[in-house]
Design a protein around this nucleic acid. Structure first.
Length: 261
DNA sequence: CCAGACGTTGTT
DNA sequence: GTCTGG
DNA sequence: CCAGACGTTGTT
DNA sequence: GTCTGG
């Protein structure tokens, strides 16, 4: 699963890391250690550039960093609020589901993350963990995206670009925390995933989707963190710090003395 | 044909 | 927009 | 994902 | 219990 993550690199840094141009057009996305669905994120896409008339040039492909809102709003949506529920797409079904099929076939993207958060259920409680790469590189999360125009708004206004993160069954270290995880793509797969000409239909998309291999899983570190991350208003590098809840010996455990009525 | 959904997670 | 269910 | 609301009438 | 907002 992936319902909260951290992205702390600038569009300039990401342009370098992903060999892309900075296409954010002046929209600044600040480093964010606690991104929930519906917030702005930096993404990577590869598209045919368009001329003044909007006609794409099939001869060239430009990879660029773009700002999108997390939570996919299909082009036919009447209300963009639907995006708050479409923030993940299952790898197993993304090529078939009505809301995701067209974006999966035509508009795939990467969503760079420095790490993501998971909550593990333990004895009826939830404990947060940060899952991050053990090197300096960001994790390239597989995503799909869409463009929405408000049918009640002006047709010339800027359309809303939105995205969703593809999930896969967990394996390796992440499986200790949760049974689903975002699909992290190794660098060698970025090109084929982003290829705008691979408009493949259901079978073609399915062929692009591989569960994470040991190359990816071996890079991921799992770290218990403070429940401060629970609240979206909390932000900053402190959220990433290792945190072990204090477990007192039973003789000193005051919780059993506190009234639970 | 029209109406209504279109999704994931987790929980029981 | 497109599919499913009635 | 988690936190917090979950409602109307009428008033400033 | 379930939905919305962040």
């Amino acid at each position: 699963m992936c319902g909260r993550f951290a992205s702390i690199k600038s569009s300039t840094q990401l342009a370098n890391e992903y060999e892309a141009v900075d296409g954010t057009r002046g929209r600044v996305v600040e480093p964010d250690y606690n991104i929930p669905p519906t917030h702005a994120v930096l993404t990577v896409v590869a598209r045919h550039p368009r001329d003044a008339n909007g006609t794409p040039d099939p001869a060239s492909i430009v990879r660029s960093i773009r700002v999108m809102r997390w939570g996919l709003v299909p082009h036919w949506a009447k209300d963009p609020a639907i995006g708050s529920r479409l923030f993940n797409a299952r790898m197993e079904t993304v090529a078939d589901k009505l809301a995701f099929r067209a974006p999966a076939a035509q508009r795939r993207c990467l969503i760079p993350a420095d790490g993501w958060y998971e909550w593990r259920r333990e004895e009826g409680r939830k404990r947060p963990f940060y899952l991050t790469s053990n090197d300096r590189e960001s994790l390239a999360l597989a995503g799909i995206w869409s463009v929405w125009r408000d049918p009640a708004g002006d047709a010339d206004g800027p359309p809303l670009a939105t995205c969703t993160i593809v999930t896969t069954p967990s394996a390796g270290e992440p499986a200790e925390v949760h049974d689903r995880m975002p699909l992290v793509l190794p660098r060698k797969d970025w090109g084929t995933w982003l290829d705008p000409d691979a408009d493949l239909g259901v079978d073609g998309v399915a062929a692009l989707l591989r569960p994470p291999g040991s190359d990816v899983l071996g890079r991921i570190e799992v770290r218990p963190i403070s429940p401060a991350v629970n609240h979206v208003r909390n932000n900053g590098p402190g959220l990433l710090e290792r945190f072990e809840p204090v477990s007192l010996p039973a003789s000193l455990d005051i919780s059993r003395l506190v009234s639970k009525s």
